[in-house]
Design a protein around this nucleic acid. Structure first.
Lengths: 188, 188
DNA sequence: TCACGCATGTAACAAGTTACATGATTAG
DNA sequence: CTAATCATGTAACTTGTTACATGCGTGA
């Protein structure tokens, strides 16, 4: 359901092809929603046949044509309808937490490397977000004054940054806990 | 995939029926994984026919029998295999963030109530988690000293608490941003 | 009597993942 | 020549959601 709306928002921000959308879902929009190109093409096709999107073939030099999608009036209405309808607050869904609780029935120490790997991945993502924030919002190249769209994109990015910082701190807590368990009560 | 493993962990912590599992997925396990009873019954059936779980009919007074599931040796092995295999770090998937970016194409002020509602839901969840922490881990009723399983459950709960606190702080940031936009540049 | 909690499920559908498949251009 | 990037898709499968369906006991 929300993939449709994420696509509408992204195409309102800037029209583009399925391929371009897939790449946006690896960065900006991907801060809070992920989707693969297979999923995107499928949904684009459906939304176009439902009249929410319009397509335009854009010829390119030396490259295959791309289909540039843009939002129709009816697409804009569909987005507005959704925006005015309340949604359920999110819950976490965290595989690693399942592993951590599962470690009680295995060797907790064996999980240290996995947790460290995740910590590093979140560190990398944080760096990436901070670089994007500097580039687009807080650096000298950033547009001043920002418009409403940019303010809103920025506050969403700050959410991503806060999430990564929180996760890194929590993983430090997890590592400390695992080390404490290894020191005081080694598994069988 | 991970629902299977979450069920294995939960049944290792304590055997139980599909109904009981569904309720655990609304509390403890639900801190980091959600599932409805329909999903759980379907997966329990599959796991049992795969030999990962064993069933035992438990007659009850005045109530329909319940099927108590427990983990078999082969289920334990399946869990251990998964624990030793690396998994991908999670990404956020946040509908509300889609709405916030979408507000640029609608009225940002109209989103204030929705964000406040989410903030309240996260406040409630935080209170609930903190009460659980006091009851099970830090209060006078808590077992001392805790065993490895309890330490691990506690660190996962601390993750849930950190997530809720971070989310509440971020939603405050979102509200401040929305109010700033309403004050300085009202949407047409 | 009516709602709620306990207890179990089926069916239909929507969403997400993984594997397969093609074909051009460009940079090394 | 090889790998990467651009560009688009199909097919099969697994997960997750929503709606429907049943039936007993207990407390208001």
């Amino acid at each position: 359901m929300a993939l449709d709306h994420a696509i509408l928002v992204s195409l309102l921000e800037k029209p583009g092809s399925g391929y371009e959308l897939a790449r946006r879902f690896e960065r900006s929009i991907g801060y809070f929603w992920t989707a693969t190109h297979q999923q995107i093409y499928r949904v684009l096709g459906r939304m176009e046949s439902d009249g929410l999107l319009a397509v335009r073939a854009v010829p390119q030099e030396g490259r295959p044509d791309k289909k540039e999608y843009s939002v129709t009036g009816s697409g804009r209405t569909a987005l507005a309808d959704w925006l005015h309808k309340p949604i359920e607050p999110e819950s976490l869904r965290h595989d690693l937490a399942v592993k951590i609780r599962g470690a009680a029935f295995d060797d907790p120490a064996a999980l240290v490397r996995e947790v460290e790997r995740h910590r590093q991945a979140h560190r990398d993502r944080l760096e990436h977000y901070l670089a994007g924030e500097l580039r687009d919002f807080t650096g000298p190249e950033a547009p001043a004054p920002p418009d409403a769209g940019q303010e809103l994109q920025h506050v969403v990015l700050r959410g991503g940054i806060a999430f990564e910082r929180m996760t890194i701190a929590w993983l430090d807590d997890v590592l400390a806990t695992l080390e404490r368990l290894a020191a005081t009560g080694p598994a069988h």
